[in-house]
């Protein structure tokens, strides 16, 4: 038989030689060395550049600005945080957080069926179509998409035209006449801002939810039906709890991205400020770095509270 060992072959092969061979052997004997070498650069990056700048930001927020000279006073004070509580600033925070919450809820509702289809039914070619469909919008520039939406939502835009052809213009007019959400046209109303936020961040909700649903074995759904649960009961008692970590992961994206964005509300929506726009204004033209920093701390704190609540509610129990 050809497979029989040739007498010349040694039981232990000689080393591969060279630096590559020596390194391979060293890493094999000491796997932690490889781990150390692989993790050091990203940890340095994360520690110094990312956490460092975050810490600098936090520090800045405890300074204040001298009202006369406009210079930053490098002394510890809570005055800047006090400024955040002024009605005009509080208004900005409430508006942004409400918008982020609504965008997150809408994204989750729209994303779930899409993610469910992709995880349960899409196979082969359809899976590729799904990924392409979800990712494709991310390939084009964010600004292009936002301006495109401005045209879609404008008074003479595509959406108005479609509603006109369907003789449904009264729907848009009726909606725009509503207080708070309405305005002169969709492109200058909070509704418009909301629609564009949902569109732009939707992929960031779909992908984690899809990943979570993919990990739910199909036989759990069968077991639930077998034990007498109707599809809606199965959804509430099995599918949603198991998909919740994915929904939470997605909501971290949609929520925090909306909290921090300053371009969309600037191009589409009313002239009212969002947190991102306030930060941009304070650190730029106004030169009030401490207040800008304090504004930036708000989303960080909100996200912290949000994750803590989610954990307490058992959202990560299925992980």
């Amino acid at each position: 038989m050809s497979i029989a060992a040739t007498p010349a072959a040694a039981a232990i092969l000689p080393g591969r030689g060279g630096i590559g061979g020596a390194l391979s052997d060293a890493f094999w004997r000491n796997p932690k060395l490889l781990l150390f070498l692989m993790l050091t650069p990203p940890l340095l990056w994360l520690g110094v550049i990312y956490l460092g700048s975050l810490f600098a930001l936090l520090l800045q927020s405890f300074f204040s600005i001298d009202e006369f000279s406009g210079l930053v006073v490098r002394e510890f004070t809570l005055k800047t945080y006090g400024e955040l509580l002024r009605p005009s600033n509080l208004d900005i925070i409430v508006r942004t957080v409400t918008m982020a919450g609504l965008v997150t809820i809408a994204s989750a509702i729209i994303a779930f069926p899409i993610a469910y289809f992709a995880a349960r039914y899409a196979r082969g070619r359809w899976k590729a179509v799904f990924y392409l469909g979800v990712m494709l919008p991310l390939w084009s520039s964010y600004l292009v998409k936002v301006y495109a939406w401005k045209l879609i939502l404008a008074k003479e835009g595509i959406l108005t035209w479609v509603f006109e052809k369907l003789h449904l213009t009264f729907l848009i007019d009726g909606w725009l006449a509503l207080p708070v959400v309405g305005g002169n046209s969709l492109s200058v109303s909070p509704t418009g801002t909301f629609l564009v936020f949902v569109y732009v961040w939707l992929p960031f909700m779909i992908l984690p939810v899809q990943a979570a649903l993919e990990r739910v074995p199909g036989n759990l759904l069968e077991a639930s039906a077998d034990l007498g649960a109707s599809p809606s009961q199965t959804f509430r008692n099995v599918l949603l709890p198991l998909a919740l970590p994915g929904v939470i992961a997605g909501s971290i994206f949609t929520f925090s991205l909306t909290l921090g964005d300053y371009i969309i509300p600037q191009i589409i929506g009313t002239s009212h400020l969002f947190i991102g726009m306030a930060v941009y204004a304070h650190q730029g033209t106004a030169g009030n770095i401490p207040l800008a920093a304090a504004f930036t701390v708000v989303p960080v704190v909100i996200m912290g509270i949000y994750l803590w609540l989610a954990k307490r509610a058992g959202a990560f129990n299925a992980l």
Partner: peptide, 26 residues
């Protein structure tokens, strides 16, 4: 009709008592 599945299909997010009581809860 109830089934004992090949790989058991126990609900991972529920404890044993809630798993057993699932059909009653429904």
């Amino acid at each position: 009709v109830n089934t004992v599945f090949q790989d058991y299909a126990l609900f991972p997010h529920l404890n044993v008592a809630d798993n057993v009581a699932y059909g009653l809860m429904i």
